[in-house]
């Protein structure tokens, strides 16, 4: 079987298209590269959607956490504490077990039956957990950025007569983003890494449709040779990380476009803020 044929069969195997049966004997390098790459679709799906939804929740939680009103601040503090203080692995298990407790027949809401079975599937349940998790980590980053906005900037804004929403929109929001962006890039990278946990923690891979690590693990189990599939996953993730860093550095450039070039903050790994 030619390599092109393999690509046609397995390139979209992880989303259920193409050949249904996974290779069982005579594993070729081409098969491993194709199938593991196909699994990467799931990592990107989880990472991109969790990040996109999580951004908004994170900003909201960060603002609530900086609020003077205890009614807003306390829940935000607890949200961040619980999700940052416990392992993602346990969160996945817990979410899966909780979602399984929902009535199988569906919930009757005002005469309309809402299906519940889809919530235990990885595409919904795991995405929800990742969404909450990244929101908590990013909220902490944004909260830190809000607190380190220079005092002079805020005083200047007030001197100009800016208050409330205007002050937030014109001063706090852009400064917060600018200060938080390098750390937020780190968070995004580690979120993509965290997506590999999904199929190893409670959420089963439906019809063997799994992520990159799921297929790498499949090959390592079958061939009993870890030296081929795991380096392939590693290579895919290094490429993904580089791509992500590039995309985020474009945004960073845009955020810092008004600064002279020697004052711009560059994006690099900051080990004190990785998750």
């Amino acid at each position: 079987m030619s390599c092109w044929q393999t690509v046609q069969d397995y390139a979209f195997r992880s989303i259920g298209l193409g050949e249904n049966l996974l290779p069982r004997t005579d594993f070729t390098l081409c098969q491993q590269i194709t199938l593991i790459g196909s699994g990467l679709i799931w990592n990107i799906y989880f990472g991109v959607l969790a990040l996109a939804f999580g951004f908004f929740l994170a900003v909201a939680v960060a603002l609530a956490k900086s609020s003077r009103r205890a009614l807003l601040r306390k829940p935000a503090e607890w949200f961040v504490f619980v999700l940052r203080g416990s392992p993602l692995f346990i969160q996945f298990f817990l979410a899966y077990e909780t979602l399984q407790l929902l009535p199988k027949a569906g919930i009757n809401l005002l005469g309309i039956t809402v299906e519940t079975s889809w919530t235990t599937r990885a595409w919904a349940g795991a995405l929800f957990v990742l969404f909450l998790n990244t929101s908590a980590y990013a909220a902490e980053i944004f909260h830190g950025a809000l607190r380190s906005i220079p005092k002079g900037d805020l005083e200047a804004a007030e001197a100009y007569g800016l208050t409330g929403w205007q002050k937030f929109r014109r001063i706090q929001w852009p400064t917060m983003l600018r200060l938080a962006w390098p750390s937020y890039t780190n968070e995004a990278i580690f979120l993509f890494h965290a997506t590999t946990l999904v199929f190893f923690s409670g959420f089963p891979a439906f019809r063997q449709m799994g992520d990159a690590l799921y297929y790498a693990n499949y090959f390592a189990d079958k061939t009993f040779n870890p030296f081929v599939p795991y380096p392939i996953v590693a290579a895919y993730f290094i490429a993904l990380t580089l791509l992500l860093t590039f995309a985020f550095s474009l945004v960073n450039k845009h955020l810092n476009r008004h600064l002279p070039s020697n004052q711009k903050s560059r994006i690099r790994l900051r080990p004190q803020i990785i998750r």
């Binding site: 590999t196 946990l197 190893f200 590693a234 990380t241």
Partner: peptide, 15 residues
């Protein structure tokens, strides 16, 4: 920086 830690875990134990 580039690779999820769980990949290392699964890899090193067998390797």
């Amino acid at each position: 920086r580039g690779v999820p830690d769980i990949v290392f875990f699964l890899f090193f134990v067998i390797a």
